[in-house]
Design a protein around this nucleic acid. Structure first.
Lengths: 151, 151
DNA sequence: CGATCTAGATGCGTTGAACATCTAGATGAG
DNA sequence: CTCATCTAGATGTTCAACGCATCTAGATCG
């Protein structure tokens, strides 16, 4: 996810930039499931994803498989074909060390985001402070000094 | 946002389906800012958005203006040109009643999402329960009974 | 044999994201 | 006066993601 390295923020702390809400949080879910299951093929993950999903949005098969390949391409997971045991061959995935770290990063990002969202929700629900009368033109025109370089 | 009405869920509760994390949460932020400011033009919102943003991702001018037009097209905000006071004409936006309700919906959605993310983060950080040895083939093949219709 | 289940993958049309660019009035410096 | 800058809004383009449909193919079972 931070494959693009996020030019804007040179912060140490992982940021939400590079991820663009990638894949509807499918990525961290997969990493987490692999972490607790040890290993699994895509099809097996599908059922668990439904149960653990962060949102009530259904998870697309295609998104799952594509995300797995994407994770593998970035070295977050490894896969190996498993043909024994009947049925079509399964591509069985396991987390790499890199993947474990990636999951931690995701946790940090989501933790921040959750807190921010929580603050936002409470701000929205805060007993409506009656808003100041339509402010003067000047107040609107120059919101603050540090809004110079708004790009 | 639930303009597509979300065919999948006929739940009463607002869901995250229709929104696809639309516009990086710019939409609810705009609604909220308009709610507390009473009214504002896009340019004035820009500065406040930086301060209130949910993520550390910078907010794109283009995204802001387009979101405003989108909100207006859906009746969530109203706008009027304001030419007095010097400078180029400003399109000044105000929330509609519909927009106020929309903000409430967003609050509900974000509240749920924040809780889900919080649970997820805690699950990830939970003291690693040593995962069971590579489970039997059967256990992998049929994850659960209710995974029949995984689409 | 044919239907169904398991498992993975691909194709495509639409939409969103990131970034650059453009118009144009107002203002201020030289 | 002229040029640069600021304010304000809008558009265009490219690329990635999303949603949905479809496809292959082995295994299994009636």
């Amino acid at each position: 996810m931070p494959s693009k390295l996020c030019a804007r923020h040179t912060k140490k702390q992982p940021c939400t930039c590079g991820m663009g809400n990638l894949y509807r949080f499918v990525e961290p879910l997969i990493l987490h499931l692999l972490a607790i299951k040890g290993s699994a093929c895509g099809y097996a993950l599908l059922a668990d994803l439904e149960a653990h999903a962060l949102t009530d949005a259904a998870i697309d098969k295609a998104a799952l498989y594509r995300t797995l390949r994407h994770l593998e391409a970035n070295g977050k997971v490894q896969s190996a074909w498993e043909t024994d045991g009947g049925g079509p061959a399964r591509r069985v995935y396991t987390l790499t060390r890199d993947g474990e770290e990636h999951l931690e990063e995701w946790a940090a990002v989501l933790e921040h985001l959750a807190q921010a969202m929580d603050r936002f929700v409470r701000a929205v629900r805060k007993p409506k402070r009656r808003h100041t009368r339509p402010r003067s033109r000047a107040a609107i025109a120059s919101p603050s000094k540090k809004s110079r370089n708004v790009r």
